[in-house]
Design a protein around this nucleic acid. Structure first.
Lengths: 103, 103
DNA sequence: TTTAGTACCTTGTATTATACAGTAGTTTGT
DNA sequence: ACAAACTACTGTATAATACAAGGTACTAAA
């Protein structure tokens, strides 16, 4: 799938998925992969960036099936960012529709 | 508007707009600006790239209200690219919807 | 016991589309 | 003569994803 089209969208996906509960990186990568082709390594830079921007709190939890998992918990600031991004995404898709019509 | 979300989309817009008839650069910039905020200089690198990839033929036509206009005429190859891009864009929007649900 | 495979996280380099600001030439109106 | 709108172009910067590689932990099979 076209790389460029995904720009910014994965960020929205990550934030949105975390609205419904804490998740760990690998889990997010798996969920997103089911709909959108991404290489696994793609997700971690996004998580780090968003964490650095204060969108997440992070904690470790042991797993019975592998190494400890790093869980991401969305913060109020993260929620704001998510809403803003979602709003821009919605606007953009609507406007592109206007522009290109049925073609 | 979020810069990253536009990546790849402007290309789709340009190609789609040219399906309904030849247009010149400034005209495309104006049309797109009505829906999506872009600075005028943004459009020309896109046009050059797509032309280099064989999506357009180009011709000059004098204008009575300014310097000569450079018209872009989409080629069969350009049409293919447009269809492909449109298809990917449609898939992406659908899949993002799946992923983020109502949130 | 060794090996393979899967779960999980990280990082560095490359790619590439848009942003922005600036240049430049033409025509019209004042 | 001058300003303003019209039209085209370019160079530098920014920033998100791709990809590859590496590393640790645990499990199951050979």
């Amino acid at each position: 799938m076209n790389t460029q089209l995904k720009k910014g969208v994965l960020e929205l996906c990550v934030l949105s998925l975390l609205k419904s509960g804490d998740k760990y990186g690998y889990e997010l990568a798996e969920s997103i992969s089911k709909e959108i082709a991404i290489s696994e390594g793609t997700i971690y830079p996004i998580l780090r960036r968003l964490r650095d921007e204060g969108c997440f709190e992070v904690y470790l939890r042991e797993s019975s099936s592998g190494p400890p998992r790093k869980y991401y918990k969305i913060t109020p600031h993260g929620l704001e960012i998510q809403e803003q991004l979602f709003s821009e995404w919605s606007k953009l898709t609507a406007r592109v529709s206007n522009l290109i019509g049925g073609n």
